[in-house]
Design a protein around this nucleic acid. Structure first.
Lengths: 142, 142, 142, 142
DNA sequence: GTGGTCTAGACCACA
DNA sequence: GTGGTCTAGACCACT
């Protein structure tokens, strides 16, 4: 799973981890009962402080996506994929809706938006990555 | 113009003001030479700290969207509508791209996204408004 | 409010703070809109690290009992006294129930338990304080 | 004896075992000279780490509740029922005291607590069992 | 001034 | 080995 983290993003590192885990659960990459990397291991892999990883895990536990067993590790909860998928979908839809409303206000045509959507979807890029040039260019032409 | 500000939003108040002004310029609601409310007036109307309004105006001035004349007030700059429109467009496209990438990571289908885009575009709702029920419902079904 | 914290308790300091605030809300001592002491102020007063106080506030925010406004401070949420009272009551009732079941298993008579309850209630002592001798003695006689 | 252990509880597994044995002694279910299951057997039955069972037995031995005879097994000590009963009683009274103090802090009336106590006592339910609905309901009304 | 994030490192409890 | 808590102190963003 998670191999890198954007230390200079405006999104907090611990939130990047939380988001990544949620997406992984929603997409089925992480399944109920799966054990997550230990706090120390993940912190070493991502080269961040263990406290930061612990903060992420703690947040995800409060949300019910995982549970921790002292001395054992942290594990994905059962019966939460559907809930997680719904949550991720809702968030993405809201974001999409707002982006569309903004684009509309800026006078972008519907067909242009559809083109951006197509291009973005095909790219299969990581969220939170830089916006690729191919997409950015679409913003130029009106 | 701006009549309310979401004090509980996770978006900083000063950014809400900046965004609102930019959108008003891009859409033509605010025209070159128009005078904006004074810092004190706006802060009283929105019930926020004057420093916050001042910070917004300062930011907008740095971006070239407005200029201040001491003792006179702050005014919308000339010949910046196009630039503003481009900026808003770029932002919207970036947002759209990220929303799509997130949705993809969560395993949402492309056809579903297209449906949301269509629905959002037709609605012609204000950005930053509540997500309408008709859109929110799309998050339920697969 | 909160003036001391038991640093050597088996209950984590940040949980002591969370509990105290919840009790204060349930009892009406803290009212909706009230501002809590700042992270720094409370940490100085209790002689603990600011991070610990922040952790408490964060937890209470997740539970919906308060909200934070960056640069402004933290405030008690509206319309949560009832919920908080119910939660505190439920917790206390569960604890009481378990204590009674244990006491029963140990062969303590009902009248004796009633006596303990009376004595504890009259004392008006802080929860998490040491069990006073007057109560402890009641454990001796069968 | 002990057939299940709550792996998700916030109470440490080894303490659950210790508590269970102490209660069994206090209630007379386990009598002096009785042999306890071996560390390996119990750990397999409860599906937990043998170290955890060993830790419980060690703790109970330190407290004088049982003794081990190498190659023979672990046995309940003689003449400790009374002491065990006293200990359990003291713990229950302390728990009761704290529950009452918490309830008081939350503004719960004394009469209500008395009602809960009565109901709990009559029920004669096992400690550590789920809180029965009949009790839980009492938390609703004022 | 406010809270939010992160680091470095310590100590503890648990399995 | 695991996670949980706490400290000391830094830097940032917001009001």
């Amino acid at each position: 799973m998670l191999e890198k983290v954007n230390i200079r993003s405006n999104v907090a590192v611990y939130l990047q981890i939380e988001n990544h885990v949620q997406f992984a659960i929603a997409s089925g990459e992480l399944k109920p009962g799966d054990q997550l990397p230990s706090v120390r291991e993940l912190s070493e892999r991502l080269k961040i402080n263990p406290n930061t990883v612990a903060k992420s895990y703690r947040g995800l536990e409060v949300m019910g996506y995982l549970y921790t067993r002292r001395g054992m590790g942290v594990f994905i909860s059962k019966d939460i994929q559907k809930k997680c998928l719904e949550t991720c979908t809702r968030k993405a839809v809201e974001k999409l809706h707002q982006a569309v409303a903004e684009a509309r206000a800026a006078g972008i045509s519907k067909s242009k938006l559809a083109a951006v959507l197509n291009a973005s979807y095909q790219l299969n890029s990581d969220p939170y990555d830089e916006v690729p040039n191919s997409i950015a260019k679409l913003a130029k032409g009106k």
